[in-house]
Amino acid sequence: MKLLQLDQIKYEIRQYGNEFLILKNDSCGAVCNSLIGKSILDKKLPFIKEVIASEEEILIALSETELIDLNALTGISVKANQESKQWTIPLLIDNNGDWSHIASRTGFNQDAYIQAFLQSKLTMQMAGFLPGFPYLKGLDKALYCPRKETPSISVRAGSIAVGGPYVGIYPVDSPGGWNVIGVTPLHIINADHIPPGFINPGDIIKFKLIDKPEYHVLKNKGLSLNDYNFS
C-alpha cells in the first residue's frame, strides 16, 4: 500500500488497472477531501482525467495515454475555503413521500420525523450524484434512514430526500434511491456555471416549512435558490 501526504493529510493509494486511483482517508471528511480534490483538479495534470471527492475517498480517473506521476501532487496546498454562506430552503412536506420506509427503519412517524428534521443544522459536504445536487450532513443519528432496496425510476425535481447520514435535493427529475420527505419550489441548478449549483462545501443550510399556497406562489415566481436568499 502506497501512502501519499497532501497538505498534511495522509492518503492510502489503491490503483485499479489503468482506469483509476482511489486516495483513501477516513478521518478528514468530505469538506476537506473536496478542498484537496479541487486543488488536485486545478493542477490540470495530463495523467488525470477526472477527480471526484467524497467522505473518505478522492477518486482520480486516469488518462489512457499519460503516465501516472504522483510526485506532481506532493506540492499541493489547500486554499482556505471562501466564507461559508447560510441558505434557507423552503420545504413543502410530501404526503406521498417514503414515510412507510422511514417509519419502519427509524420508528418515527411523519410528524415526529419532520419535527426532528427541522431542528437539524446541516452543512454542505460535497458535490456529487447529479449537477447541482448538494450532499448535506448534520442529521441526528436517530433520523438516519437507509437507501431504498431498489431505487425509484423517477424522483421529481426539487425533491428533498434522506439517505443514510445525508440530506439531498434533486435538481431535476431523476432515478433515485433516497427517501423523499418533501419538495422545494426553488431552482437549485446554476446552469452554464462551474460549479453548476449555488451551495458550496462548508455552507450552512436550514429548511423552512411552507404550505401548499406558499409553494405555488414561489413556484410561479420561478425563483432560484440564490434569488430567494440574496435578492
Binding site: E19, F20, I22, A30, E50, I52, A53, S54, E55, E56, E57, I58, L59, A61, G128, F129, Y135, P146, R147, G163, G164, P165, Y166
Partner: peptide
C-alpha cells in the same frame, strides 16, 4: 452490506 457514505463512481 450498507455503505455508510456515498462514494465516487465512473461510467462502467
Amino acid at each position: 452490506i450498507q455503505l455508510t457514505y456515498s462514494v465516487p463512481v465512473l461510467p462502467g
